[in-house]
């Protein structure tokens, strides 16, 4: 079971390697990746450095080019695939059908992974990408329960990667336009949900207010924890009731399901968080390395250690973890 770790910078990549990553995924610093934030990600110089460090440790490098290419700048997305191929990355993580087709034709030896942004949730959907393009692995959407993951794994002819830990999208990835509805920029086309330029944090007499392009999305009292300023985690009014109508700020944590995921033949566990610091990467990767090693240890019964639980809870958005959609009751 491969541990696939996030890196938004070289120090984060080193932290991932130091603490037990089997593979690290990165993006280029533009709209071709789904964490398109200022100051984050890799230019060509740093991508090359990343590759050298990965190779020196004998690990794998994946490049996420997982947004949908815009019609008037398709060449930018093609260029990103070419750059990843020139780096001899171990795989590219793609979502756009036009781009996957390009990668297959132009770089027949480049391994293709299907991004979670492609939202493939059924056997035939996975089969589409395998038959058409020879996609080797697919990252499963976080909307599926464990039983559904097991059903898919039984039928799938591609490797499957599931999310282990990180901030939670409750909407099916790649099929959410909430951000662009309010800000004009979306994960699909701009690689960003709630772009920072549209976010405003304001201290008022009654607490902390968050606005997104002027729209009030939450209001926190003095000691309430805050979350990312995304629409799905705001507090709104329905039927006169003020509440987290869609979701509370929450992180996904599927560690307790590791034995089942292993038994079902899941090939890789992905950690979310290219936007987080090297300190997060170090703590979370170390914790998951220990857990995966423990679950792979033959003849022992796996249980989530208190220490692991604490470290993950501390790094969680909204300071709480749930089993997310992998656990049916959550739905």
């Amino acid at each position: 079971m491969e541990l696939v770790c996030p890196a938004g910078s070289l120090p984060a990549l080193e932290a991932a390697l130091d603490h037990g990553a089997d593979a690290v995924y990165i993006g280029f610093s533009d709209a071709t990746n789904a964490r398109n934030f200022g100051g984050l990600n890799f230019n060509d110089k740093n991508a090359l450095r990343a590759l050298e460090r990965i190779r020196a440790r004998g690990k794998k490098l994946f490049v996420a080019i997982n947004t949908y290419a815009k019609p008037d700048s398709f060449t930018r997305w093609q260029g990103a695939v070419d750059r990843a191929a020139a780096l001899s990355a171990d795989a590219v993580i793609l979502a756009d059908i036009g781009l996957i087709s390009y990668a297959r034709e132009k770089h027949p030896n480049l391994a293709l992974h299907l991004s979670v942004q492609a939202s493939a949730t059924s056997g035939p959907a996975l089969e589409f990408y395998r038959q058409q393009f020879g996609v080797r692995r697919a990252v499963l959407p976080r909307v599926l329960s464990l039983r559904q993951v097991q059903q898919l794994a039984a039928a799938s002819r591609v490797e499957l990667e599931v999310f282990g830990f990180g901030s939670l999208c409750i909407m099916a990835e790649g099929r959410c336009h909430l951000s662009s509805y309010v800000t004009g920029e979306s994960p699909n086309q701009n690689g960003v949900c709630s772009p920072a330029r549209a976010v405003e944090w304001r201290n008022t007499a009654s607490g902390l207010e968050t606005r997104l392009n002027g729209v009030l999305i939450d209001h926190f009292a003095e000691h309430e924890n805050a979350g990312y300023p995304t629409l799905c985690k705001g507090r709104f009014i329905v039927d006169g009731k003020r509440q987290h109508v869609l979701e509370e700020p929450t992180s996904l944590n599927s560690m307790a399901l590791l034995p089942e995921l292993k038994a079902t033949g899941i090939q890789a566990i992905k950690l979310e968080g290219r936007q987080r610091s090297p300190a997060y990467v170090a703590q979370v990767v170390r914790t998951w390395r220990e857990a995966i090693d423990a679950v792979l240890e033959p003849g022992t019964e796996f249980s989530v250690k208190d220490r692991w639980r604490k470290t993950l809870a501390k790094n969680s958005e909204g300071k709480q973890t749930t089993l997310g959609a992998y656990d049916r009751p959550w739905q």
């Binding site: 805050a226 987080r276 610091s277 501390k314």
Partner: peptide, 11 residues
């Protein structure tokens, strides 16, 4: 030692 987003979530 600490991740800024973690501190941010905790206000």
């Amino acid at each position: 030692k600490e991740d800024p987003d973690t501190l941010f979530f905790q206000r």
